[in-house]
Amino acid sequence: MDTVKKVTKGDRASAIAAAAAKLLPRPFEDESAEIAAVSPELAESILKDARLILKLLEEDDSPEAISRLLNYLTQELLHEALPPEREREARWRLGSKGLLPSAAYEIRFDRRYKGVFNLARDRVTTAIRNSEAHEVVWSASDEDAAEGKNTLLVFTKEVTSRNGGLSYDLVLAGRDRDRLIVDGAFEVFPAGLRLGPYPGPLNLFEAFVEAFGVPISIPGRVPQKLILDATYSLPPSKRSLTDADMLNQLAPRLRTEAWQIASIRISPLGVVQVGYLFCIDLGKYKKSLEGHNKMD
């Protein structure tokens, strides 16, 4: 639009907004939607430009014409105010806050996914994008995020199995800005699980861990299958351990295949902060799938 080009770059978004405000059927949300810093003449001139570009007659105030003008100016305003770099940063912030819809996150898979889990990646992606609901298993603080520890989410999607029964695809994924990194995915049959009357993702996840998890012992606590937000101190001789070493030490020794996942931080003073920690007995889980005739 020629008129907009003559406006200082920093003021263009306001000028377009002022023109768009004139098209709102009434002050829709606010009594004073006008942008104070923009002259009415400039706003009118931008409207004229927009009509020319859209080939709309000046006297055409039909709802269709107004709608097309408003849509055009809104797109121009978004384009002017949000260049690609600002757009990417806004997306990251919204993603970190969990305010992007599930469908808007980029989905990636942890390198350990292949070889451990049978659920096809397309199916997992569908389970996330079309999940009935998702809930936070563990929320990373800013400090955790700075160390690369991500908030852990659980997604569930109802699936009708081949024999007509109900099952759920249960997906565990870490949230890293605008990406979801899939750690694990399970097909879960509700029979035999301790579920509430209307199980949400967290209830399903906890019941699943209760059924297929392995008790884990950490100092000062009775063995539990799901450990969330636990803290304990290491003796001086063990303060050089990394979080990977610590996970190895804490992981139960099983005769069957197992999958454990954790968020662990060790401070220089030897304080171990376990965000979350659990271990699934994959042997037991796969055996239960066989019972449901689900093994591929």
Binding site: S14, A21, L24, L77, L78, E89, R93, L94
Partner: peptide
């Protein structure tokens, strides 16, 4: 969408929201 984008810009110009708030509204 037109109304909310106009308002986001208006709130920002009036110092009622920060620039990053406006950006997040516009992104959505």
């Amino acid at each position: 969408a037109g109304s909310l984008s106009v308002l986001a810009q208006k709130w920002y110009i009036a110092n009622e929201i920060a620039e990053h708030d406006r950006d997040e509204i516009l992104y959505m």
